[in-house]
Amino acid sequence: MVSMKSPQEFRFNSGRLALDLPATVRRRASEPDDVLASPGAPARWLRDAALLTHLPDLSVTQETALLELRETIWSLADALIRGAKLPTEVVDRLNAVAAGPAPIPQLDAASLTVYRNVDDPVQAALTIIAQDAVDLLGGPLRSRIKACSQPDCRMLFLDTSPSMRRRWCSMDRCGSRAKGAKFRQRLKNSSLT
């Protein structure tokens, strides 16, 4: 019996938390699929991203804030990749979220574990994502932000390869598709000769 691996609901393979959030829109360049559109998905994403320890009931305002942060990060990273000027109003939106209340790490003396002390865990989660985006977009790694070369994907990722020649968000997904298409085209071309 062949075991089928179920697809993950969310992708956390971009290399940075701030880039994982825009990855919740798959095939952004062709037929966008918003994986946060289903009921409860934004809360599950925050939990699966290890930003929350429990599954909260998000308000419409909280879900909207998460989606707005996603599009803010996407637009800034996309502009950066294209070499365009970053829109000041979009940078201001990112900075406003990054200035929010961050969780305060606390050490539990009995268990020697760290817990996060925070009044509003959802807002703190958004702040963490925004601060990661500020650090990434304004730091030395910004030149390593890329968009997948697969024309229908365009997922953002951090190229940590030594040569900085990575082209696809994932070799298992888009890289495999691209190489398969190239192989099929070579076969087709060789059969025509």
Score class of each variant (00 low, 15 high):
residue 32 P to Q: 03
residue 123 Q to S: 09
residue 105 P to Q: 02
residue 96 A to E: 12
residue 86 L to K: 01
residue 20 D to I: 07
residue 163 S to I: 08
residue 128 I to K: 05
residue 75 S to Q: 04
residue 6 S to I: 07
residue 176 S to E: 12
residue 45 W to S: 10
residue 136 L to E: 14
residue 52 L to Y: 04
residue 102 A to L: 03
residue 30 S to Q: 11
residue 86 L to V: 11
residue 111 S to M: 07
residue 181 A to I: 14
residue 119 D to L: 11
residue 4 M to C: 05
residue 89 E to N: 08
residue 166 R to G: 00
residue 144 R to T: 03
residue 138 G to W: 10
residue 162 P to F: 00
residue 132 D to M: 09
residue 96 A to T: 12
residue 126 L to Y: 10
residue 164 M to H: 06
residue 172 D to W: 06
residue 108 D to Y: 00
residue 12 F to E: 06
residue 184 R to L: 04
residue 96 A to C: 04
residue 111 S to I: 06
residue 31 E to F: 09
residue 142 R to G: 00
residue 145 I to Y: 01
residue 19 L to E: 01
residue 5 K to I: 15
residue 20 D to N: 05
residue 98 A to E: 05
residue 71 E to H: 03
residue 88 T to C: 02
residue 137 L to H: 10
residue 38 S to T: 15
residue 52 L to T: 14
residue 39 P to D: 11
residue 46 L to N: 09
residue 46 L to Y: 12
residue 154 R to E: 14
residue 114 V to G: 06
residue 191 S to N: 06
residue 44 R to H: 02
residue 64 T to P: 07
residue 107 L to M: 11
residue 130 A to R: 02
residue 97 V to A: 15
residue 143 S to W: 00
residue 154 R to G: 02
residue 12 F to Y: 10
residue 86 L to F: 08
residue 183 F to I: 13
residue 53 T to A: 13
residue 117 N to M: 13
residue 49 A to E: 07
residue 185 Q to K: 15
residue 6 S to E: 15
residue 99 A to K: 10
residue 17 L to A: 01
residue 92 D to R: 04
residue 189 N to V: 12
residue 149 S to T: 01
residue 165 R to N: 12
residue 173 R to G: 15
residue 134 V to L: 10
residue 47 R to Q: 09
residue 34 D to S: 01
residue 106 Q to S: 00
residue 110 A to K: 00
residue 167 R to D: 04
residue 109 A to D: 08
residue 50 A to E: 15
residue 8 Q to M: 11
residue 66 L to N: 06
residue 189 N to E: 15
residue 72 T to D: 12
residue 39 P to S: 12
residue 8 Q to L: 02
residue 97 V to M: 09
residue 100 G to P: 04
residue 138 G to R: 04
residue 37 A to K: 06
residue 29 A to N: 08
residue 145 I to D: 08
residue 177 R to A: 14
residue 126 L to N: 12
residue 100 G to Q: 09
residue 69 L to F: 09
residue 187 L to E: 07
residue 169 C to W: 01
residue 185 Q to W: 06
residue 24 T to F: 01
residue 24 T to D: 05
residue 75 S to W: 00
residue 89 E to H: 05
residue 109 A to S: 08
residue 189 N to W: 08
residue 125 A to R: 14
residue 66 L to P: 00
residue 26 R to I: 03
residue 76 L to I: 10
residue 31 E to S: 13
residue 18 A to Q: 05
residue 155 M to Q: 09
residue 15 G to T: 08
residue 7 P to Q: 15
residue 175 G to S: 02
residue 79 A to I: 09
residue 146 K to A: 14
residue 23 A to Q: 05
residue 171 M to R: 02
residue 119 D to K: 11
residue 193 T to H: 07
residue 144 R to W: 05
residue 115 Y to T: 14
residue 100 G to I: 08
residue 170 S to R: 14
residue 140 P to C: 13
residue 38 S to F: 09
residue 72 T to R: 07
residue 155 M to R: 07
residue 11 R to Q: 13
residue 115 Y to D: 02
residue 45 W to H: 10
residue 95 N to V: 01
residue 179 K to E: 01
